[in-house]
């Protein structure tokens, strides 16, 4: 029997994984995330929004259980998109079981397990979260969240040294942006005659991206509450 299991594990890993229920998988993911009580992470933030030209900035991201998170720009100013608090994945499970899990099967291209979270609460800000979980490592690779007010945003995670804590080395936060247009009276504009077609075409792209690359985490070393105050 053991041998059969072993062979089946070797030959049909997917089949084996499939055997795990969505609940079990989420539990496993959460267990990993729960290892982290707090962290202080250093990294860089890069904003890619059509109407923003921003320098790459150094950031410190602080997290503390259950849901405190703060992104501090150490070197300047960054436009932080709304909903980006969810770059901390455990925030996705905030409602702590107060959601319905729907098993979405496997993603055809990546093979990641698709799990949908539907909050039970009617007036929850989040309407739906779709997680793409790597079953082998129990890590969320991608999460798409649809909110009631702030559109849909997507998280893409790349893991490295801190994978055992479920903490990503790189997070790409994609979100839909609204039109940016300031009336002339308010702006600091002058017409240098350089408006070209290409520029306006680029402007039509309404998806913004914020990329955070973490260089280090200090995990469970304690983060004072004062950090999270405005």
């Amino acid at each position: 029997m053991k041998i059969v299991t072993l062979i089946s594990l070797l030959l049909f890993p997917a089949l084996y994984a499939e055997s795990q229920t969505a609940e079990e998988l989420v539990k496993q993911v959460k267990a990993k995330l729960d290892l982290v009580n707090d962290y202080e992470a250093s990294g860089t933030i890069k904003t890619n929004v059509v109407f923003i030209k921003a320098p790459v900035a150094k950031v410190k991201v602080y997290y503390k259980k259950p849901n405190k998170i703060r992104i501090n720009n150490e070197s300047g100013i960054s436009f932080i998109p709304k909903g980006s608090v969810n770059i901390n994945l455990s925030n996705l499970f905030m409602n702590n079981g107060n959601y319905d899990l729907i098993d979405g099967g496997k993603d055809a291209t990546t093979g990641y397990r698709i799990v949908k979270l539907l909050p039970k609460e009617e007036n929850s800000e989040i309407a739906l979260s779709v997680l793409y979980i790597d079953e082998k490592t129990a890590l969320i690779r991608k999460a798409r969240t649809t909110t009631r007010e702030n559109g849909t945003y997507e998280l893409d995670m790349t893991y490295g040294k801190y994978a055992s804590y479920g903490l990503a080395d790189k997070v790409i936060f994609s979100f839909s942006t609204k039109d940016y247009k300031l009336p002339k009276g308010v702006t600091f504009d002058y017409d240098d005659g350089s408006k070209n077609e290409q520029e306006t075409a680029r402007m039509k792209n309404k998806t913004g991206r914020v990329e955070i690359v973490y260089s280090s985490y200090k995990i469970n070393a304690g983060v004072p509450d004062s950090v999270f105050k405005e």
């Binding site: 923003i52 030209k53 940016y180 300031l182 009336p183 702006t187």
Partner: peptide
């Protein structure tokens, strides 16, 4: 803040 873009420089 320009009419159509936000220019940031460190």
């Amino acid at each position: 803040f320009r009419a159509g873009t936000i220019e940031m420089m460190e």
